[in-house]
Structures are given as C-alpha cells and as structure tokens.
Nucleic acid binder design. Structure first.
Lengths: 167, 167
DNA sequence: TATTGTTATACTCTATAACTATA
DNA sequence: TATAGTTATAGAGTATAACAATA
C-alpha cells in the first residue's frame, strides 16, 4: 500500500531527497521575504515615481503582451479578478495603462501600456534594478553566478508550480 | 576625480562587474516576487490556521529572542514602529503573543510567544515548509544545491544591505 | 531631550460574495 | 450556461504625522 502512504514516507531514497528539499524550503522561507521587503522598500523610497511591485509586474506583463484582457493579467500575477480589476483601475487613473473595448468581443478588455506608462516603467525598472545591483556590486563573479543560477531555477520551478495549482 | 564619478562608471573592470550585478538584479526582480506570491498563497490556503508572512516572521523572531521590545521587532522585520505595533496587536488579539510591561523599564515592552503561539508557529511553519518542499520534491540534488546556495547568499547580502540602509 | 510605543489617517494589496453584461 | 469584468465589503500590511509616556 505504498500508494496510500503520505508522500514523505514513500521510499528510503525519497526520504533523502525530501529532506534536501525541506532544507531548501526552509532556506527559501527564511530568506526570500527579506529580499522581497528590500525591493519593496527601495521602490517606495523613490517617492512619487514609485510603483508597487504588483504595479510594476503588471506594466511589464502588459508591455510584453499588449492588448491582454483583465483575466490574463490576473492569471499572470496569480491574483483574483477583483484584485486585478482594482490594480488596473489605479494604473488607469494614473494614466499608465489604457483600458479600451475590444471590437467584436465586447466582454474582453484591451489593456495596453500608455507612452507615459512606458516611461515610468523604464525609469522605475532601471532604478530598482540599479539599487539591487548596487547591493551586489562588490560581490565576486562567482557569488553572482551562484545567485543568478539559484534564482533562475527557483523562479522557473515556482512559476510552473503556480500554474499547476491554479488549473 | 574618480571619487566624484557615479559608481557605475568608475573603471572598466567595474563596468564589467556592475553589468553582471545588473543581470543578476534583473533576475531577482523578475523571479523573487513569483516565489513570494506562491508562499503567501499557500499560507493563506491553510485557512484558519494560516498566518501571514510577517506574522510568521514575527513569531519566529520572538521565539528566538523572547522578551524583545516592539522596536526590535520593527527593526528585524524592516518596518516602521506603527506597522509593528499593529502587527503585534493582531497577534496579541489572537492569543499568540503576550505583551507585558518590563519591570524597571516601563517604556520597553516584553513580548513573548505564548504556548498557543508556539503550537501555531510550529504547525504553520511545518506545513508551509512542506508545501514548498513538495514543489521541489522531484528536482535533482544538484538543482536543489544550486537553489540553496543561491538563496543563502542572497539572504545574507540583502540582510546586510537592509541593516546598512536603516542605520 | 531622546527613546518607546500608540493613535489617527490614508493608501495598496488581497480575498469572497454578489452582481452585470456579453457570448 | 459559461465567461469577462465590476462593485461591495472586509481585513492585512504599509507609511507619515502627531502624540503620550518614560528615561
């Protein structure tokens, strides 16, 4: 009856593997929020030009997939539609996103980044990235590579996992 | 006058280094929010037993440094004192933290995790860690090591950076 | 005067529930 | 009926400004 046993007890081999995964999970839960908070704080510190992290991510998404509907935005961000709706509202109010009716399919919105939005996006993105980069400026090439590789894998796995959960 | 030049133009060598740091920064800004959102969503999905990420971090901190004052909590989390005050309020209301006067120094609070808080902490921590671990369960040992190393370095650097900024 | 903590206020993010409008 | 989106409501997290109490 191995099929009924909880996953963490399936086989000896998998105990070892799970254990490594759990150590890894603990590291992630401890350290990722610290990084996240740092990024948020720095983005806020820019004052008027600042965007929240979800706003930034929305602008990035819409600049890569212009004309998307609200549901696509919600799915990309991993939030509900009301949340995305409010988010888009604020961006529209700031003049950073335009919300137009799609001809021939009046249910789905056509969301695009305005020129003002593009400027803002570029500015915020560069300065957020610059501040994070400053934090890493004095690190060795090896350390940077370690971080890059780890973060890339991490993002890949969790993006997959999020999509699996929400489908 | 190299001292006056902006850091990103100091020397040719440092341009190269900065460039690597900037690539790294871009990776971080793209992927870290995805992971963070995943963690938050999973913690919420636990329903009644769920704690927010800041609440979890507060309980962890107080269980490692029992008797801390509110300012210490705020500093550890990287938030302002009003924010920490509200956070602690909610935890006290839930009976997870006790807030007592410190004899002989009535300004500073004495914050401790209650037994109920300890139980809750352990449960949430384990299940959050288990879900994250599940996401990583089928990855190779090499991939896990890559992630662990990257995240550990990342946390280290950003913790340092946060402390530098707030002092 | 400096430190600790709280209150008041306002904003963003977030969800669930209930709704409208379109297909 | 199913999908796209909005509105209403509620609560957490966050900040700034202004305050009280203690040292």
């Amino acid at each position: 009856m191995p099929a009924k046993a909880p996953s963490r007890f399936r086989t000896t081999l998998q105990i070892r593997k799970k254990s490594a995964a759990q150590n890894c999970a603990d590291q992630i839960i401890e350290h990722v929020p610290v990084v996240m908070r740092f990024i948020r704080m720095e983005m806020r510190r820019q004052g008027a030009g600042g965007l929240s992290v979800p706003q930034l991510r929305t602008l990035i998404f819409l600049s890569l997939a212009p004309g998307s509907g609200l549901s696509s935005v919600a799915e990309h961000l991993g939030v509900t539609r009301p949340t995305a709706s409010a988010l888009i509202n604020r961006l529209v109010q700031q003049g950073l996103v335009s919300r137009a009716e799609r001809p021939g399919e009046r249910r789905r919105l056509m969301l695009t980044v305005t020129p003002a939005g593009s400027h803002r996006l570029q500015a915020v993105r560069e300065s957020a990235s610059a501040v994070v980069a400053d934090t890493l400026a004095d690190r060795s090439a090896g350390e940077l590579k370690t971080i890059m590789d780890g973060v890339a894998l991490l993002g890949l796995f969790f993006k997959e996992a999020s999509h699996r959960k929400n489908s």
